[in-house]
Write a protein that binds this DNA or RNA. Structure first.
Lengths: 103, 103
DNA sequence: TTATATTTGTCATTATTTGGCAAGTCATTA
DNA sequence: TAATGACTTGCCAAATAATGACAAATATAA
């Protein structure tokens, strides 16, 4: 599997010389949980990603992008038609964007 | 929401002059369930998509593509970074394809 | 060894999904 | 107006999956 998000977390955390047990409490999760998130064994919630960004001095959007990308990739990866489906989905999303936001 | 998959089902079914109550039993689901699937209120399982294809005289791949696309679009649609994430995910999936299937 | 960092495994709880039924609407026909 | 046929809605219990926490197991280092 892919886990660009978790890899980025770890990279940023190590760059900052932070330990799992230092970061985890700031997020109200325990250390094993954060470890699992970094390794892609568990999925972070969006809200956790948001809280993580400032701690790792990263842009929330950047992290969110990787976080979402992993989920999309997981869906597409185990299907033969994965790439085609992504094309169709992309067109779909672009189209929705045009017709005003529906809240 | 989008539901290209369900729309296609309905289109094909009507082209064939088949009724929900005729098709549903062939799939071992009840009529309301098939109705919900067509309207995108419920998600079909992959296996059902496969069984549906011959009944509607469609290519399984074509239906699978729409089916997957809807799921991907649903993920990407409610995020600001949806489109970016799809780009990243696409690169991710393409990359995985190169390094042999890991079954 | 001892100490510290991370990972693994398991588990109960909670949340989400699933499939089905009963009843509903809507349109058409008798 | 009734009755019929096609489809939809609402609801629920059962199955399934996700979540968070903990203890214990591995490193890794001193």
């Amino acid at each position: 599997m892919s886990n660009q998000f978790g890899n980025k977390l770890r990279e940023l955390r190590e760059q900052q010389n932070l330990l799992l047990r230092q970061v985890a409490p700031l997020l109200d999760v325990d250390t094993p949980m954060l470890s699992k998130i970094e390794r892609g064994e568990r999925q972070a919630k969006k809200e956790l990603v948001m809280r993580l960004a400032p701690i790792l001095k990263a842009k929330a959007d950047e992290l969110l992008t990787l976080w979402l990308a992993d989920q999309i990739a997981a869906l597409a990866a185990d299907e033969e038609v994965g790439l085609q489906a992504m094309q169709v989905a992309e067109a779909e999303v672009k189209y929705q964007k045009t017709k005003k936001k529906k809240k």
